[in-house]
Nucleic acid binder design. Sequence first.
DNA 1: ATCCTCCCCTAC
DNA 2: TAAGGTAGGGGAGGAT
Length: 1156
Amino acid sequence: MVKPPKTMQPEAINLEKAGRSQNASFGEDSFRNYMARKIDMQRQQFGLILPPPPPESQELKKGLKRRVSFSVDVKDKKEKKRKKSGIQSVLKRLQRRHGSRRKRKRADITEDDQHDNSFLEDDVEEFIDETAAKSPASDEIESSDCETQMHKLNIEARKDLFFRGIVVMVNGYTDPDAESIQRMLHKHGGDLEKYETSRITHIIAERLSTAKANIYKKQRKPTPVCYPTWIVDCVKAQSLLPYGPYLIKEVREQFATNGSIADLFRRVEENKVSRDGCSVQRGDSSLSSPSSVVKKGELLVDETSQYHSFTVSPVGESLETLQHESSAYREDVFSQSQDTYTLMNGLDSADFPVDESDRVDSSLKVTDNVTEFRVDQRIVDVPRVINEGLSNENSHDIVSGIAANSSKKDSKHINGRIRTVGTDPDFLESFFSASRLSFIGSFKQRVRNTSTLQNEKKVNQQRYVLHIDMDCFFAAVALRNYPAYQDKPVVISHFGISPGTNEPVDEVTATSTSECATCNYHARKFGIKKGMYLGQAKQLCPDLVVLKYDFEGYEEVSQQVTDILEEQADLYFGNLEQVSCDEAFLEIFLEVSDESRQKVAVIAESIRTSIFDVTGCTATVGVGYNKFLAKLATDKVKPNRSFVVDNPHDLLKELKLRDLHGIGYKLERKLEEEQLVTVQDVWDLGKEAEGELIRVLGPGMGKKIWLFCKGIDDRPVQPAERKTIGAECNYGVRFNGPYGVDHMMKGLAKEVARRMAHVGVKGSKVSLKLKQRKQGAPPPPKFLGHGSCHNLSRCCEVPFDAVTRDSEVLFHCGMKLLDEMCVNRDDIRGMGIIVSKLVRDNTEVIDLRTRIEPSILDYFKNPHIEVSANDTGEREAANLRNSPTSSEDISVVAVHHPPTDADCDIDIPSLSQLHLSQVNQLPSPMRQTILSKVDAANKERKITDERNAISSRDARLLQTDMRRMMKLAAVKSGDQSILGSSDLGVSMTQLESLPLELQLQLANGDDRPIGLVPRKTRNTSDLSRPVRSKFGALASDQSITEFDAEVIAVDSDSDDPSVPLTVRRQSFYQENVKPLMIFMDENSSNNEEAVNQVLEFFHVVIAEEERHQEAVVLLRSIRRRKDSWSAYPFNQILDELNSSMKRTFGYSLDRQMLEY
DNA sequence: ATCCTCCCCTAC
DNA sequence: TAAGGTAGGGGAGGAT
Ligand SMILES: Nc1ccn([C@H]2C[C@H](O)[C@@H](COP(=O)(O)OP(=O)(O)OP(=O)(O)O)O2)c(=O)n1
Ligand SMILES: [Mg+2]
Ligand SMILES: [Mg+2]
Ligand SMILES: [Mg+2]
């Protein structure tokens, strides 16, 4: 009995088409909108939030003047120093010292380090004067952690940094606005975050929007929400005022009745000292610092004095309260919607969304088959260890501590609650390691075929493709250990038994929504299918044997099979492509003869025999003239057989379209509507067939299926280069506990970063996938499933054109994208991060623990990195997008070398990857230049290496860059037909000396990211001023000169139409780069004063203007100089840049950014 | 035409 | 009680 081949997994039927979240259509005003959008995008992407003129304009003008004139007003500087954060202050002084000792020429790094240390010791003394009570630390400073100590000491010492430890999120419109608040915070040691993170200690709002209020009301341990006047008053008082009196009215009651005073300050205390990269661990303190619980109705008192005399109470008390909390949690598990209902009804109705459906919806969440956790905050007095919604890292210890005590064995519960992303900090980790789909999904690329040279068919040879597929793979592997069950119906599920465990009771499995990954052929007779719920399977077959997963076993057997197949591939000079853990294509070429068919049949059988002998599992082998037919052959005769397709026509005429590769549930339906069900139906269309299929399926798919119907398939048997890498989780995603979206995002980012390191890639494009529960969606049928959802996705480029696998960068991108999607946290049912535009990069040791991301510092301290041939195959420093790193012979690149060639200064690695067809469209002189360059480069690096596929793909990915480069090339070649009559305002010589990035910007007239100043027009006065720190003014020693900014866009499409957005355009080159270059032309880098001025300038750009992108461009410009300036280390600047970027973006750069 | 983004679909 | 991932192909529609 031959069963008809089928793909057996039941399809999840998505009845509704997910609507697009964004309507990106533009009307008449498309250009303007486009610009506005682009500007906004760039502004966000590059973090170019140029500080508006601060409210304290007096002070700033003073600062400005000082900066411009570089007068040495000691008093002024001292004042300024006070306002800076400790680290900046250190850097500032370091920079000055460094400048004064600059006579030593470009020291190596160690020398610089020593230098820094000795300097720091000097400064310690200074600080001790200021700190009074902090003296012990000075003795403890060892060279190893001197810097950390220094920072710590420094931070603690600064009285003016009264906001230290305060991290604020501004909610909605405030007065003063978020930017002003940010400036105030920064000035006094605090920080502002744009989205929910664990760092946030306070929320600032004038009032809570209904939506936020709603969310907020559900928090059992809310972050305090204060009026912005709290910040203002603190600044006025020059100290941190207790925020109690500033709590907004919507939440005042909750704080009065619920929290403890100490709780209110705890997070501040914890955040202290550990700011800004100082690796001071926190968390333990929170475990042993319980709170004095404030009783209901107790008034808030001014706790300023207690703030510093915060005491640590005995451990016993701590435990007691923890257990208290634990039982509170447990209690909740059994509470049903009643709690929520009561709680919500108890709230002011004004806090609810106006829309009735919203309200119903909120309550409905309880109907998910997880009992959601709600505690009436007015009743429960527990220490505030968890800040709902925002993950509080400090709570980690406590939660897991409880888990260890009370429920470690209970894999389903944590702390008495069902494990979800929100309740279990390690949820993702355990999820990924237990997920079969994650296992099979990542298998192919994870166990990458060692790509050998592709063998080719010779004349007089017949191509055969063998498709090898293991029979009921997971089941077969499991059955190795249970020969007794061979002839019984068997399924594989998490609920099953494995050697050493006992069989679970039957009642439980009857309704199980655990999926059966697969089942043996005996079980299939009962109608059991892959992916079916265990409960269903059990109903179909009560005597079902359920076995557990054995991922290691799959790896093992898979490897054994692969070994056999590789051997065969070598033997016949064929090609092998692993398709999945249980499946592969083997292409071989046999001399054309009458026996070739017989021969290949023998090979197929011998492979099957070998596989069974080695693994104890059976395989099916199908043979055809191409992949498509081979697979059909396998499907036709499964299991445990082999089959050679002689006559494709005979094979195909029996088949339904659904049986074809690429036609699944949806397309089958679609074709059905057109009365197309079988291959025969397509054939019957005759000449119409192709057109009809294309009409129904689209040009690509239609053509493909048409060819399939004719038995044609030209896909090569070849392992494909990976294009994306990612991790997602759409299971157990409920933010019903202490861990919020940010925690999940971090988990995903870490997972992706780990995988990237494992396979040795970096990427420059980050996508976020999101599942959003549909309004009114019924509870998911599957336990902890996602149910009916909208699927959303958005992507962004990694800032600064860098490639990365830094989990912090991924996290940051992810949060940004999430932000853009505007999805209510509680509606999220799944998330994933996918990185694309990949580049091979084995720079880092693949040790998952010690991630050492090279930073910008590494490059600048070593500006003339050469990427050279490397015998060992290591690719030190070859981690650049355009570097062909996977071959043996790279001798190009020197990324930042000064231009060596006058005619065409485009870096070869980039150029070589252009599509020649596109190069050919160029005007003749330019084309010649480029082609000769490409040619030379190709010769040099022997581009024949097929393994270098990823680089050629970069060409496609870089098409935008390429277009821009073409423009630059045209400029350089003076080609007017392309150029038009635009004047760059730069001479050719000047142009040549600029970093490629800037050259491109100038040539393309798109240097907008630099110097863009979005602003609100209603803020008038100072905004007509351009970039405040212009080197031009410095160089010519004049006061700032105003210049007219070009207004290129009006009308923001922001939420508030009454706030038009004006964008001013200016040339960063003209205003900053050029003057700096001239200044450097006129002054030697040996001139201490000149150096100091440059340093000062950079300090302004980085620390005060926070214009990181500009700083990078400036540095790159300097690196391209041909004089001694290019070798000047600028270590302090780089430190400052990195730490400032770390603050602003949450991460700093690696040196990929210096590619150009 | 050819790209890019944001999807949908398929296969394992 | 459960672990609904991963990656590629390709279409629609807008931008260039
Ligand atoms: N929905 C699915 C499909 C497959 N798999 C896993 C289990 C299978 O054992 C393995 C291989 O998939 P196959 O499609 O090759 O299925 P089997 O090998 O199990 O059965 P067959 O004999 O049909 O090949 O992938 C899974 O977990 N869930
Ligand atoms: Mg199989
Ligand atoms: Mg298979
Ligand atoms: Mg199919």
